[in-house]
Design a protein around this nucleic acid. Structure first.
Lengths: 183, 183
DNA sequence: GAAATGACCAAATGGACGAATCGGTCAATT
DNA sequence: AATTGACCGATTCGTCCATTTGGTCATTTC
């Protein structure tokens, strides 16, 4: 009940604007009860983020299709993960709070989230290299480049221009990262 | 004298923290004098940014060597332009002010700066396509991807990891954008 | 007697409001 | 005709103090 109430409140109001009193009220428990299960507000927050990360990972895993090529699978996994930022209440709120207020606890969590995504991609890259599907490269750096390219295409491009369609993003991803511009 | 004093003050204190009184004092003129040459604070600022842009353009032009390949020239031009952000007092200050305070006038200017860079790269890309050096692609979008990749490699990567050397960046740029990861 | 509770505390936050500072004007001066 | 700084309204700053916040713990509950 506490986790459910806290998730709802964090999603609606963000980390800073969520008070323990409110979570206790929403969860129909006394305030002290929360502190028998969580050492403090941040630990409660971390617990919720832990399930969020698990959920994202599962979604990404589910989006991968062994029949398809590596680059298409990376595209699918990345796309499904990054859709969270745009469509899930909690991640939207946290993303805004990080940008607008710079709440330290939120920054911490967003860094963790990015690290998890990078680790996930890097693992896929290592497998693809072992299979001989792609050239030898630094997995960490390649994952970083892929993620940044995606974020640019999905979030930054839309700030000033017409949003790109899903297939367009796939094409661009293929063109720039896999095939290369050289003739 | 006014422009010189204003440039110094903007570089040292940023846009918001620079007062017209201070510029007048530094320039050894009365405050009213400034308003006979510039309609307001923002116009004075824009004038200074105009010379900054010209300076950046000249530096980029100078860094291009017709003997070298297209991708190496793009790398050189981008690298020299982006070095401004790291080494020039004024751009450093403005970059910080945009990130930390979100001063509207500064955001405006930084958007203009980015547009100028994108336009510059797009022009280079169009020429390279005409020469048949690279595949057909959307110049605007390609310029966008190149710039974002560069910014990621030069600024974002360094936030949490060992900075990349110049040659490393060149190699990565070649690998991801030009050759592609596919075998 | 273990778990739950809410009154309680120190610390952080947020208005309220007067003082100070800001960008910009303009009559007086050079 | 060009320059100036006193001056103006608007915004920001600093300093209160009342309120709220995260967290504790003696008391109550089952």
């Amino acid at each position: 009940m506490i986790i459910e109430a806290a998730t709802k409140s964090f999603s609606l109001f963000g980390y800073k604007a969520t008070t323990i009193d409110q979570v206790a009220r929403l969860a129909n428990v006394g305030k002290g009860t929360i502190y028998t299960f969580f050492r403090n507000k941040e630990e409660l927050f971390d617990e919720i983020i832990k399930s969020l990360i698990k959920e994202m990972k599962d979604t990404a895993d589910a989006s991968i299709d062994p029949e398809l090529s590596f680059y298409e699978n990376v595209h699918r996994a990345l796309y499904s993960i990054l859709r969270y930022r745009k469509e899930h209440q909690l991640t939207i709120k946290l993303f805004q709070e990080e940008r607008d207020m710079g709440t330290p606890a939120v920054i911490d969590v967003m860094v963790k989230l990015e690290q998890m995504i990078l680790k996930y991609i890097a693992e896929q890259i290592i497998v693809a290299m072992e299979k001989g599907e792609i050239k030898q490269c630094d997995p960490e750096l390649t994952a970083f480049v892929m993620l940044k390219l995606y974020i640019s295409l999905i979030f930054d491009w839309e700030k000033t221009r017409e949003p790109l369609r899903k297939e367009q993003i796939l094409e661009l991803f293929e063109l720039y990262i896999f095939k290369g511009l050289s003739k």
